[in-house]
Amino acid sequence: MEVHCEGCAGCCMDWRPLTDGDAAGGRRRAALDDTTRESLDGDPNFVPLTRGEVRTFLERGMAAALTPRFWHAADEAEAVEIDGYEVASVADRPVFFVGLRKPPKPVAPFGREGESWLPTCVFLDPTTLQCRIHDSDLYPAECGAYPKHNLALEQETECERVEAAFGGDGDRLVDDSVPDDLEDLLLGSQAIGEKLFCHPVPERLEGIVDRVATGELTREDRAECLAVAAASSPGTVAISEYHYEWGKERALEATAADDADDAESWLGPAIREWERRREGASAADGGSVPPASIADDIETERGAPETPGWDALES
């Protein structure tokens, strides 16, 4: 696969507000057999992490970067009712993905002259529109597999959706050939316990499901879901109690440490600062948008990895 990403990052943000929500957006992330399910959170570009990736983020003290995704059930046979929602389940266990959070950031993708506040991947540098962890062992496998999974599933890629909405004459998806090796495309039962996680106690999700739908998740909510993901067993709905307790402790420790003045991770403080800035802009006259370069103060100065820039990649 070959893609031309400079100035784009359409797969790393929710750019629908730029089109008044009219553009058909969102990668198809098929882990359940029925593709009619709608997510509770409404994020069109949710990249699912594997169990191993979730554990790695927890080990690095980076739980603040992660969040769960649940779905509306396709029918009564698979539904578990929680907080008034019919939630998709497997064997009466609510199922969810774990992916990367998208705080609001001032970005100017697709050649736009001015920045706009858009939900943007926590690891995307707003200035260069490059991923801060692209060359690291934290880079999610699903990000690296895009857009070949879409093409293998005969689904429109984000490259094509961006071009349809903003132009570009086919210069983003440079090579649309699909590699033979697609072992990491986990579908249906293959995904269970590996990237589709089954919560063993639906009662523990009361309140959490509603906060997923309203975008008001707490650190405790996230810790509960991350613990289950870390404790899952590929191919089964079994949960390791040891890894559940470990995962929950790691998640809570990491997010609590983010509140300290000398927080070890830049993620939690940066996310809170982005949210504070966005709320402040909403209250201000005209809803002002700062330049993308403010990310130097909010992310880089807190320890976020810098990106190489596009000139460095071309040389």
Rank of each mutant, 00 (worst) to 15 (best):
S39R: 10
R101H: 09
A77H: 07
E86H: 08
L58D: 07
C225H: 04
V228R: 04
C198R: 00
A270R: 01
G303A: 12
S240V: 01
T255I: 12
A283N: 11
T127I: 08
E249S: 14
G188Y: 00
P234C: 06
F96E: 13
H243V: 06
G21C: 06
V3H: 03
A231L: 09
P126Y: 03
V3I: 15
S177C: 09
P147I: 05
W266E: 13
E301R: 07
W310G: 13
F96V: 08
E2A: 15
A223M: 06
L173G: 01
R112G: 14
D171E: 15
A23P: 01
D221S: 11
T214G: 03
Q130K: 04
D83L: 08
G193A: 00
F166S: 12
V178W: 02
C131A: 02
G280D: 14
F166R: 13
V47K: 04
A257T: 08
L267G: 04
V228K: 04
I294F: 05
L226Y: 00
R276K: 11
S136V: 04
R16L: 10
A152D: 13
A292R: 03
P305N: 12
P48F: 05
R250I: 09
Q190V: 01
E78N: 00
R27M: 14
E113R: 07
E206W: 00
G303K: 07
T307H: 02
N45P: 09
T35E: 11
R161W: 03
G287L: 11
P109W: 05
P140A: 06
D259M: 01
H243G: 00
F166Q: 13
L173R: 01
E158P: 12
A213D: 08
R211K: 07
A91G: 13
V87Y: 05
T36H: 08
Y146Q: 13
E158W: 02
P119L: 05
W266N: 07
D169N: 08
T67A: 10
A64P: 03
G309S: 10
W266F: 12
R27F: 11
R16A: 13
E183P: 05
D262R: 06
R55K: 11
L138Q: 10
P147V: 00
